[in-house]
């Protein structure tokens, strides 16, 4: 057994897992508040990548048809693109909530679920119509480099992914635990009605939840696109399922749980990929079914019994 290779796979897994975590946070927050699997979340992630791609393309940072070399995007512009994409995705997230989920808030749980599937299909195939089906090369946001430590390669993109994810998740945890809006969010996810009685604007809080989750998904999309480095309108499909599994694994409704679940999933996938890449695709689903059977509340979640 090649331990260096295995270690290499694990480091890659940490980077992959950080991306899962960023997307999983959006699932977990929405589920915590609305008890809804927001299937469209993974497509907001896809939009995040495209929203950063287009301005870079318009400004000429991509190789042209004549085969000219792609230019590096200056750091200030990268920041601008990322923030712009986050803002645009936050708007999309809020729009989805307002147009598709809010009208169905009081009509059981099946109708919003089906609607979520509908929104997801709409974004995926609408994306295909607008952006085209072919994979597109993502602009170079950072020059690829890698550092060699005892035979294990650390790509600078992986480091950037892990650091960015850690910073954003930390900021989110601080926000949720130490601000007024964060407290409102926790109150709403605890009980809708009680929160309203306490004078919390429930609708505004839910919109904020969608905006937060969507902007983090946008960053996730950009990070993955930097790493890949191609994007397609259907890139959200697989990511969405896995990020949701990460959220369930960590305990749905829990933000540290999403981070933990994402990392665990990323690492275990990469470890299995050491033996078989085909089966590494199945790991997420095996974990999902295992968790649902053994501990449906997830690692850090708390379970509530249904009362008669």
């Amino acid at each position: 057994m090649d331990f260096t290779q295995l270690l290499q796979n694990m480091t890659n897994g940490v980077a992959k897992g950080s991306c899962y975590a960023l997307v999983a946070v959006g699932y977990t927050m929405v589920y915590g508040v609305l008890q809804l699997i927001n299937f469209a979340h993974s497509d907001v992630y896809m939009l995040g990548a495209y929203f950063a791609y287009w301005p870079a393309k318009w400004m000429g940072y991509l190789p042209d048809e004549k085969g000219g070399r792609a230019q590096d995007v200056p750091l200030a512009l990268v920041g601008l693109f990322v923030v712009g994409s986050m803002a645009a995705c936050a708007a999309v997230g809020a729009l989805i909530e307002r147009a598709a989920y809010r009208p169905l808030r009081h009509s059981g749980r099946l109708a919003p679920l089906i609607t979520a599937i509908g929104v997801s299909l709409l974004l995926e195939y609408g994306g295909q119509m607008v952006f085209g089906t072919e994979p597109r090369l993502f602009p170079t946001f950072v020059e690829a480099q890698s550092y060699d430590v005892a035979g294990v390669k650390f790509a600078n993109t992986s480091i950037i992914i892990v650091v960015t994810a850690a910073v954003l998740m930390g900021a989110l945890t601080l926000f949720v635990n130490h601000t007024r809006q964060g407290r409102a969010l926790r109150a709403v996810s605890h009980s809708f009605n009680n929160a309203r009685l306490m004078g919390i604007n429930v609708n505004a809080t839910i919109t904020m939840t969608f905006m937060l989750g969507s902007s983090l998904a946008a960053v996730g999309g950009i990070l993955v696109a930097m790493d890949q480095p191609t994007i397609t309108p259907l890139m959200g499909l697989r990511m969405g399922l896995k990020a949701f599994v990460a959220a369930v694994l960590g305990g749905i409704g829990s933000i540290p749980g999403a981070a933990l679940g994402g990392l665990l999933l990323g690492v275990s996938e990469s470890v299995v990929a050491y033996w078989s890449t085909t089966y590494s695709e199945a790991v997420a689903f095996l974990i999902l079914i295992g968790v649902l059977l053994v501990r449906p509340a997830g690692i850090l979640g708390s379970s509530a019994r249904e009362k008669v």
Partner: peptide, 13 residues
């Protein structure tokens, strides 16, 4: 391409 899927999705919504 993808128009029919978009129509599905719209119908569903």
């Amino acid at each position: 391409s993808g128009l029919s899927m978009v129509v599905y999705a719209a119908l569903l919504l």
